[in-house]
Design a protein around this nucleic acid. Structure first.
Lengths: 161, 161
DNA sequence: ATTTCTGCAAACGATTTGCACAGGG
DNA sequence: CCCTGTGCAAATCGTTTGCAGAAAT
């Protein structure tokens, strides 16, 4: 049983806002509540919808203005998965080194962590004369189960397509 | 001394166009000539400029219509480096497994290959029940030389900023 | 009281698309 | 000749921004 994530986020954010001299507003609270109330990746538009459910007054502009703050503060990670819109991942607080495997067949995203990967990345980076900062591994693959059976669990659960 | 890349590309493309029942046009030729006449990454807009130098009649629309063909055919790789516009990398023909290290300080992009990385990616992917297709590693780091000396070779050579 | 935040709607920039004509097979 | 490819300009879509009023400190 671990500490409530939302609480931890709220704490970090308070520090962040404080350090930057930024103000606490109902809109920012709602956006944060929405962003870390899910484990799913989301787009700015999706976040807007989720935040609006918590606080009707949240506007698209505020979402777009708040997202960079959360990214800059390290709470949220911006990713580009090749889709039209940018995607945000709220799971980096809990799993700071996780990576992504994307199924080409069902578009599902599987998150994974691997200490060897982490180690190897650091080695390579240092060997090249750099100090590692952000690392992103994106692997695309075909689902073996789907290939074998013609369907897979993830496919069945898929929302779209 | 290896085979001329442009020739190889022209060959692959001929196959590709043929297989798809697509036609050979001066505009497509020029775009391909431009795309593989450089080792630098480029945006659609930059490719347009380069292609126009070869064949004035090339238009923006045709560039945008041709790029997906090249990506689909596996000749060109589309990457998202966090910039506004998508970036294309012509070096995957020669180095199919290369990855990218981006200097946070000078924005320079260093390409690197590593067999261990390749191996590890495949292991992880299989362990998760997938067959690896595309793999992209993007590492951001700080330049050690810059930190130590206040400047670095790449910084000096940088075009912008 | 002062300064930051906000929503709105207009602006923006990259990419896509409908159309009528050009040109490859 | 037929059908695909093209340039042009308008349309689209995600994201950003100027502004006047609202809210936080």
């Amino acid at each position: 049983m671990e500490t409530n994530i939302l609480d931890r986020v709220r704490g970090s954010l308070q520090d962040f806002l404080g350090a930057k001299g930024l103000r606490r507003t109902v809109q920012r609270e709602a956006i944060i509540e929405a962003a870390f109330g899910t484990k799913e990746h989301f787009s700015a538009e999706e976040l807007l919808v989720m935040a609006k459910r918590i606080e009707k007054s949240v506007s698209r502009a505020t979402v777009y203005r708040t997202l960079p703050l959360l990214v800059e503060s390290g709470l949220l990670r911006e990713m580009d998965l090749g889709t039209d819109a940018k995607v945000y991942d709220p799971n980096f607080i809990e799993h700071p080194t996780h990576n992504h495997l994307i199924c080409v067949d069902c578009n599902k995203i599987i998150e994974f962590e691997d200490p060897n990967m982490e180690l190897l990345e650091n080695c390579i980076t240092r060997r090249l004369g750099f100090s590692p900062a952000n690392k992103a591994v994106k692997i695309e693959g075909h689902c073996d189960e789907l290939k074998a059976k013609g369907s897979c669990d993830r496919k069945k659960m898929a929302k779209h397509e």
